[in-house]
Design a binder for these strands. Sequence first.
DNA 1: GAAAGTTGATATTTATAAATACCAAGTATT
DNA 2: AATACTTGGTATTTATAAATATCAACTTTC
Lengths: 148, 148
Amino acid sequence: MKEQLENKSTPLFPISTAAELLGISVHTLRMYEKEGLIVPFKKDSNQRRYSRADLERIQCVRRAINEDKISIEGIKRMLALIPCWSIMKCSDKEREACPAYINMEKPCWAYNLEDNVCAKMNCSECEVYNSFVECNSIKDYMKQNWGK
Amino acid sequence: MKEQLENKSTPLFPISTAAELLGISVHTLRMYEKEGLIVPFKKDSNQRRYSRADLERIQCVRRAINEDKISIEGIKRMLALIPCWSIMKCSDKEREACPAYINMEKPCWAYNLEDNVCAKMNCSECEVYNSFVECNSIKDYMKQNWGK
DNA sequence: GAAAGTTGATATTTATAAATACCAAGTATT
DNA sequence: AATACTTGGTATTTATAAATATCAACTTTC
């Protein structure tokens, strides 16, 4: 029994239910995923299951695109600024070998990292991914860390 | 004699020359400025003069828009992440009153700040503005500050 | 085991951001 | 004082990102 209690990250809804709840099409959801904006849980059969946190995150993405007029590429670049290397306490050696540290086109969870901490874990359960659900969270994070 | 030597931030070119050097229209330049992406020097007569650093910055903006497909709104949000409050050593009181600290839609230099350090100075000569000419500089800055 | 829902992929539509063109009034240059 | 350039504004064009539609093969559900 790894996870008994239901929480915000519990995989619940199949794609059609998620789409309905959000008022968007199933294809749009898959497109966001392909772009690396979201990482829904996948069952063994490869079917997606969306959590409440996923829905919240998708609403943020949606607002960013449709109201704030930030392009998907722009959102990806912003998410690429999350200091995952610091949160995951990567060694200098790991950093120098990690495309998520080196590059800046997309968030760490949009890579398929095979030779560091991230290889062992599922991004949909990772602290990095789950600490930045809300859109404002990146600037808030910077404010905290550059307090003085 | 405040500034005798010519450097990267020396105001040199009128708008038409800048446009020609960059291969874009005069109006596009004004548009970038209106959006708050650039702050060229202005003469007393209100005419713009572009420095070499301005040209470099505009090339970065251009690449971001046309090659990387980041929208102008997206660029603004990225630049809004620059921790100006830390660079300028703003007090807690100043921070709490500053829209550039509170909000996240646009870079600090796109505001007309009247009641803090920024009121006294010209953004085109400010350290914050001049430390982030290159597009990669924000992530680089984060890497430096979250080294360990 | 039949019906409903899912998978990924490509092709098409639509909404709009980015750039351009045009304007009259003001400034610079000779 | 005449010519060339700049100012800020709106109105228009164009390039394309975001979303939709359609597809055959595969999975879930009852």
